[in-house]
């Protein structure tokens, strides 16, 4: 089998990629003890927008328009990049693959036992404290208990339009500008790290989901899936073991590319005052300061280069091992 195209950049691409990611991980872990000349998030007001390697200065990589040391921001930004952006990209891809894969596999033909459906509705009724909430609770308990017992007896089933729901949700997310999201969330307090991760995943799972769904439409009719079905395997197993791994192929390219988008989104949120607090360094924020100083190439080169290398490394690693010859 031939390798996917652009990963054979270097013969030992995989090793190099692993090495790069390990280096980043080490940087992130060791950042506080590294002998950096300047701490992060501390403006050196006497040196604003200093180019790198300026004579007589220990700002080796220069400073940004607010006087922060670029080197310190880059090193400490690694923590944010790995902890937030990469994590969000992984989670978003996983969520997208599961939802998109399920939607593409079952389309609108999935059925849920009626009793559990009613139980869920009852639970919702109770949670919203609508009139007669107690009755809702009873229905919920009864319904959920019933669904535990029901599958053996083929009860009446409720069709679940899974495909339509997933498609609708992706359409909704795609159509709502991020700024509206900000409008809605702006009144609330600044997001914690977990909340921020949640927002990032919430806004970015739709892309992978659509990709996987489209691929699943194709994979679902391939001979090997049909064969697995014909063997009488349960649909869930066919989906998980056979169809889904094949349908995730487009994600290999999309995942590293999505990282760049996530970094951008994270810095946009920070820019609007609802992302990371300004004292937390991040590559995205550093890239963003280039807005103030369009001629300061070093503000783009540093984080942009790191981002590019990370994307290439992830790309090399995301290739299936079987592709190696």
């Amino acid at each position: 089998m031939r390798a996917a195209p652009w990963v054979t950049l270097v013969p030992g691409a995989r090793t190099v990629a692993l090495g790069w990611l390990a280096l980043l991980g080490a940087l992130a872990l060791l950042a506080p003890v590294l002998p950096l000349p300047y701490p992060p998030a501390q403006p050196d007001l006497a040196h604003i927008s200093l180019p790198p390697f300026a004579a007589g200065s220990t700002h080796w990589l220069g400073t940004d328009p607010q006087g922060r040391d670029v080197l310190a921001e880059l090193v400490f930004g690694t923590r944010t990049a790995l902890g937030l952006s990469v994590a969000a990209a992984v989670l978003a891809s996983a969520a997208g693959a599961l939802l998109g894969g399920a939607a593409g596999f079952w389309r609108n033909r999935l059925r849920l036992p009626l009793v559990s459906g009613v139980g869920l509705l009852g639970g919702l009724w109770w949670a919203l404290a609508l009139p007669g909430a107690g009755a809702g609770l009873v229905v919920a308990v009864a319904g959920l208990a019933g669904s535990g017992w029901a599958p053996a007896r083929r009860p009446p089933r409720l069709p679940v339009p899974l495909d339509a729901v997933v498609l609708g949700a992706t359409a909704l997310l795609g159509a709502v500008p991020r700024l509206v999201l900000v409008v809605v969330l702006a009144g609330s307090v600044a997001l914690g790290p977990a909340g921020l991760l949640g927002v990032l995943v919430l806004t970015s799972w739709a892309g992978p989901a659509r990709l996987v769904r489209a691929e699943m439409l194709r994979v679902g009719v391939q001979p090997f899936v049909a064969a697995a079905r014909a063997l009488g395997l349960p649909p869930g197993r066919v989906w998980w073991r056979h169809a889904l791994p094949a349908a995730c192929a487009p994600l290999r390219t999309a995942f590293p590319l999505g990282l760049a988008g996530l970094l951008g989104l994270e810095s946009t949120l920070s820019f609007l005052g609802m992302g990371l607090p300004p004292e937390v360094p991040s590559w995205g924020r550093l890239l963003n300061t280039a807005r103030l100083e369009p001629t300061a190439w070093w503000l783009v080169a540093g984080p942009g280069g790191l981002l590019l290398l990370t994307m290439l490394a992830l790309q090399a690693l995301s290739r299936p091992a079987s592709a190696h010859k």
Partner: peptide, 17 residues
């Protein structure tokens, strides 16, 4: 301070430091 105001952010960072 108002988000997007870099001058105020610089003041805030200096005060914080």
């Amino acid at each position: 301070y108002r988000a997007e105001e870099t001058a105020f952010e610089t003041i805030g960072l200096q005060f914080r430091a």
